[in-house]
Structures are given as C-alpha cells and as structure tokens.
Amino acid sequence: MERLKITDDHGFTARKLRKEERKIKDASLRQRVTAVRLIMEGYLGKEVAEMLNLHRQSVSTYVQLFNEGGLEKLLDKKTPPGKSPYLTEEQQKKLKHMILHSTPFEQGLGMATSWDTRIIPSYLQNQYGISMTRVGVNKMLHCLGLSYTRPTLYLGERRRTEATGICARDGDDKKN
C-alpha cells in the first residue's frame, strides 16, 4: 500500500492549516482539514484514520480533494439533491392560492367548508393523478408557508382564511 502524499500544498504549511482549522465552525469540515494537516506532518493514512475515527478511504479522499483544488475544494461540501417534489412550482402556487381563497365546497369537493389533510390528497389525486399521504401533504403545506389550524366558526364578516382550516404563516398570504 502506498503512502498518502500531498502533491500540491497550494501554499499551505501544516502551521497555516492548523490556523484554518481553528476558524472552521463545522466539525466535519474541520476534521477534513485536520486529516490533511496530519498527512502533511508525516502520519500514515491508517494512523490518521484511527486518530480521527474515520475510514482510511475517507482520509485518502480528503487528501485527493486537497491535492486537486486546495482548501476550497476540500471544504466544498456538496449536499445530495433529495427527492423532487410531486408538484411543479406553478402547480404549488395554484394549490396555495386555491387553499387560501376558496373552500372545498366551492371546488366541488363535498360539503366541507375548510381544507384539511384528508381533502387535499383526494383533490391532488383527481386533479393531477398524484397520490400523497396525509403526512406528505402536511410537509408540502409547510413548505408552501401554510399551517393547519383548527377551523373556527365566526358570526358575521371575517377574513376567509380565518374561517378555513389552513392559513398562511407569518404574513405569507400577503406575498401572493
């Protein structure tokens, strides 16, 4: 097995890397810099992995990243993209507008006067052919800036969103 080597130090010494380590708040990113610094100081990859409780392949990857692009590439932490949403942005805007400005009864979804996580999945199934759980709908509503509140019966004229079960959080309804 070959010894790990820093082929391009990008102007960094072990001392400069130690100073950079102290500036980094994120523990996992700091650990990356520490691994490279220890290799620079002459430790074996296996020893560094044991000291930092890492897999030896991770240490090798960190050294490779540092050799390719220096500290910038080493600290570039790409996050996975995650699952794409069921609805497009346009469909989400349309759904939000519909929830805030109409009732299920007005949309022909029975006698209900307020939206809830039982009615919305059936609407999504009928309108877009999308099957979502109630928990998924709740998360989607949260992402849209909406939250579920218990419907309240008001006598007289009140804002429609106060009478419905779902309302905008923190003034989000003013944006749309």
Rank of each mutant, 00 (worst) to 15 (best):
G42R: 05
G156C: 11
E20S: 06
R159M: 06
D116E: 07
S60W: 06
M51P: 00
T34P: 02
P80A: 10
E90F: 06
Q57W: 04
G70D: 10
Q92P: 01
D8P: 03
R169D: 08
D116I: 00
L141I: 02
R56I: 10
T79I: 09
T7N: 14
K77M: 10
T34Q: 15
L141P: 03
E21M: 15
E89Y: 06
T161P: 00
H142P: 00
L4D: 11
K94E: 15
T79V: 07
L100I: 13
Y86V: 01
P121M: 10
K73E: 13
T34L: 07
E41C: 13
R3I: 12
L100F: 12
R18V: 04
R169H: 00
A112G: 06
N176G: 14
H142Q: 00
M51D: 00
R158G: 06
K139M: 07
K175N: 11
K23M: 12
A49E: 03
F105C: 01
S131P: 00
I6H: 14
Y128F: 15
W115K: 03
V135F: 11
N126E: 12
T133C: 08
E21I: 13
D9Y: 07
R30I: 01
P121L: 12
Q125D: 05
K96C: 02
G82I: 03
E2L: 01
V36Q: 11
H55G: 15
R159N: 05
V135E: 12
V135A: 12
R30K: 15
T79P: 02
I24A: 05
F105L: 04
E106L: 02
K46G: 04
L155F: 14
M51T: 03
K93W: 01
L52G: 11
E89I: 08
P104K: 05
L153C: 06
E2N: 03
E47L: 01
S60L: 03
G165S: 05
V59T: 04
T88N: 10
R22G: 14
S58A: 05
R37E: 07
K83H: 08
R158I: 15
T113D: 07
F12C: 01
A49W: 08
E21F: 08
L155H: 14
K77I: 08
G110H: 03
T34W: 06
D172Q: 12
W115V: 04
K25A: 15
N126L: 13
Q57L: 14
L44Q: 06
G171N: 14
T13E: 05
K96E: 02
L52V: 08
E72L: 12
K5N: 13
R134S: 13
G136Q: 10
K83G: 03
E50S: 11
R134A: 10
R37P: 06
D172Y: 09
T7K: 14
D116P: 10
D170M: 14
R134E: 13
I130F: 02
D172P: 04
E68F: 06
Q107E: 10
S60R: 12
T7E: 15
T161M: 06
K77D: 14
E157W: 13
R118A: 10
N176Y: 13
T88H: 09
L71C: 01
Y123C: 08
G145I: 04
N67W: 09
R32V: 02
G42M: 09
I119M: 04
T113A: 04
G156I: 12
Q64C: 03
E20K: 05
R158T: 14
L54F: 15
R169K: 09
G108H: 03
P85R: 02
E21W: 06
V63F: 12
G110T: 01
I6F: 10
N176S: 12
K25W: 13
